[in-house]
Structures are given as C-alpha cells and as structure tokens.
Amino acid sequence: MADDARGTPLPWIVQWAGLVSSHATVLDLAAGRGRHALFLAGRGHKVVAIDRDISRLPAHSNIEPLAADLEDGSPWPLPERRFGAVVVTNYLHRPLMPALIEAIAPGGVLLYQTFMVGNERFGKPSRPEFLLNDGELLELVRGAFSVTAYEARLISDPMAMVQRIAARRLP
C-alpha cells in the first residue's frame, strides 16, 4: 500500500482486517488523521471515525466523521449503535472500555493495538494511565470473545512495547 500523508495502517490491522465481515460497519475510535478509516473504507466498509478533531479526517463517501471528546466525561456518543468491528490503535482511556465492548455486535471483531508497560524505556507514552498492563486486553475480552490472535511484545519499527488483539465477540 502506498504511503500517503495520513500514514500507512498498522500491520496488525492490515493482517486481521479480513476477519471483518464484508458488510460490517466499522468504528475507528480516536481515528486521528484517518489512516485506518481510509484503509477500511477502501475495503468497502462503512466507517464511523470518532475523534476530537475531525478536520484531519479524509473526505470519503464511506467515512462518517463524528466529533467527540472521549475523555471529557461526556456520555458515550453512540449508545444505541452496534458495529461489526471496532478498531483502536495507539489509544487507551480505560473508562471507555465497557462502552467500547458493548458497541461490538455479536460476531463482530475487535482489532486493538496500543502501548503497554515497558514502553517507558522507549519514550512516550510512559505514564501508567496510558500503558496497558500485561494481559489487560485478554482480560477485557475474557468470556465474551473468542481470541484469534494476541501479542504482548517488543516491536522494532518504531521501537515500542505493544499489546494487540484480534478477537470476535461471541453470539
């Protein structure tokens, strides 16, 4: 995939995007400049891309931008919507976790990658509230999801400690 001004999608998302049903609507949480929203829209998915600043999101007929500050204490902005997949990368706000899990429809997929404890050796984020604890993503989905893939490891480009999961919500 050619690199554009938005950046290429993370390899973990590309690798496991095939788990997402072809007709699924995807939620891209904390979408940033929209690299994953654009990638998934290009695969034919409708994508709801949430971020505080939606001005950085690409204009695309399959992308529905939604401006929301996910950390200001406001209620979850999509309480009645369920998605065939939720994608989260390089973002952690633990108070959102219950709503995030609830937003995934039965049979839907969670694709999540973010930094974990140990990353403080490599730079930011380094504060504990922004770093997953060992096994935290597994605990998040325990009993409600079937885990397809999980890693907690050092990656080299860029050097970071990450935790990532691809899991399907049980019916």
Rank of each mutant, 00 (worst) to 15 (best):
M1P: 12
M1H: 12
A2T: 15
A2Q: 14
D4Y: 01
D4K: 05
A5Y: 04
A5G: 07
R6M: 01
L10I: 13
P11C: 12
P11Y: 01
P11I: 00
P11M: 00
V14C: 00
G18A: 05
V20S: 01
V20L: 04
S22R: 13
S22K: 12
H23P: 01
H23I: 02
A24T: 09
A24N: 06
L27V: 02
A31K: 01
G32M: 06
R35V: 09
H36A: 02
H36W: 08
A37C: 11
L38D: 08
L38N: 04
A41I: 03
G42W: 09
G42Y: 11
G42T: 04
R43K: 15
R43S: 02
R43D: 01
G44Y: 10
H45Y: 08
K46C: 11
V48N: 00
V48Q: 00
I50W: 11
D51N: 03
R52H: 12
I54P: 03
S55G: 13
S55P: 02
R56V: 13
A59T: 14
A59M: 02
H60S: 09
I63Y: 00
E64K: 15
L66K: 07
L66E: 04
A67G: 11
D69R: 10
E71I: 09
D72P: 06
D72Y: 12
P75Y: 10
P75D: 12
P79W: 05
E80F: 09
R82M: 11
R82C: 08
F83P: 01
F83G: 06
G84N: 05
A85L: 08
A85P: 05
V88F: 00
V88K: 04
T89I: 06
Y91W: 11
L92F: 13
H93C: 01
L96Q: 09
M97D: 14
P98L: 12
L100A: 07
E102C: 03
A103W: 04
I104H: 00
I104D: 00
A105V: 03
P106E: 05
Y112H: 13
Q113G: 00
F115P: 05
F115I: 08
F115W: 10
N119W: 04
N119G: 03
E120T: 01
F122Y: 15
F122R: 05
K124G: 14
P128A: 12
E129L: 12
N133M: 12
G135P: 03
E136D: 02
E136T: 05
L138K: 13
E139I: 07
S146D: 14
V147P: 09
Y150C: 04
A152W: 05
A152V: 03
R153K: 14
D157A: 14
D157H: 14
P158T: 10
P158C: 11
M161T: 10
M161F: 13
V162H: 03
A167S: 11
R168V: 15
